[in-house]
């Protein structure tokens, strides 16, 4: 069973006046089949956690370990992490002009699976995944993220999640900027992947709204660069009622 173990993770970014520590000792273990929601106020370091796990060059790991089934994730390049089974659905996916969605999906599936998918089954696979996400077939011929609406970008991210079948899926604010219909469609996509029982999900969000569609097994409150409190789904209800105030003011520095 795949397990991602994050232990005492410290991460800095280069700021104007030298390096600034953003993650200050994160401990978290995610097992295949589990869904963890990480919730926290803006600027708490949630997205830094997501991008650090994926290996974004902007973030420097200054301490701690991250392993996937015992393998050192921090030693891996960005593409190696993806091929090892770590997937990051991005909050702001970038445009890649001149590269069509269909070319991109196939290139990435080939890389992750280690061989080119058979054309016939691949076409069906993409088509049915797109239908379930209510994406127009013409979408496949557009350039990656070019001129996509916010909702289209998020559907495209979840389409990749469904096709690449990672061991660990990190969803960075996938709910932000979505209307209720799009949120439902995107959540259903995530749930289809979760229902296979083969993915561990790290759901990073500011709002509790998405948790109505995607039920977490664990909820963690993120504040000031570390996990301030962990609990079950009931912790989300508490956050819904009380907000993050107590973590921002006192709790986080404890």
């Amino acid at each position: 069973m795949a397990t991602l173990e994050i232990h005492d993770l410290h991460v800095s970014v280069e700021a104007e006046n030298g390096p600034r520590e953003i993650l200050k000792g994160v401990d978290l273990t995610i097992k295949q089949g589990e869904t963890h929601a990480v919730m926290g106020p803006n600027g708490s370091g949630k997205s830094t956690l997501a991008y650090s796990l994926a290996g974004h060059p902007k973030y420097t790991v200054t301490g701690g370990t991250v392993t996937l089934d015992g393998e050192d994730v921090l030693e891996m390049s960005v593409d190696e992490r993806a091929r090892a089974g770590v997937f990051l659905a991005m909050q702001y996916p970038v445009e890649v002009p001149g590269v069509s969605v269909s070319n991109f999906l196939r290139t990435s599936a080939t890389a992750v699976r280690g061989e080119a998918p058979k054309l016939r089954t691949w076409v069906k696979e993409v088509k049915s995944a797109m239908e379930q996400l209510q994406m127009d077939p013409a979408f496949a011929e557009r350039n990656v993220n070019e001129g996509f609406s916010g909702g289209e970008k998020k559907r495209h991210e979840i389409l990749q999640l469904e096709l690449l079948k990672p061991k660990i899926a990190i969803l960075d604010e996938t709910d932000s900027g979505l209307d209720v219909d799009a949120l439902r469609i995107v959540s259903e996509g995530v749930n289809r992947v979760r229902e296979t029982g083969e993915v561990g999900t790290l759901l990073i969000t500011h709002y509790t709204r998405i948790l109505r569609y995607i039920k977490p097994d664990f909820v963690h409150v993120f504040a000031n660069g570390r996990i301030a409190e962990s609990g079950g789904a009931e912790l989300a209800d508490q956050l819904e009622n009380e907000g993050y105030d107590k973590y921002v003011k006192g709790g986080a520095s404890a």
């Binding site: 994926a54 974004h56 060059p57 593409d79 890649v96 992750v112 690449l164």
Partner: peptide, 18 residues
């Protein structure tokens, strides 16, 4: 762009080519 493509498993040289 490079990060996005590599985060989908595509090796750097192939990402540049794309």
């Amino acid at each position: 762009q490079l990060f996005y493509l590599m985060a989908r498993g595509i090796p750097e040289s192939e990402a540049r080519r794309l």
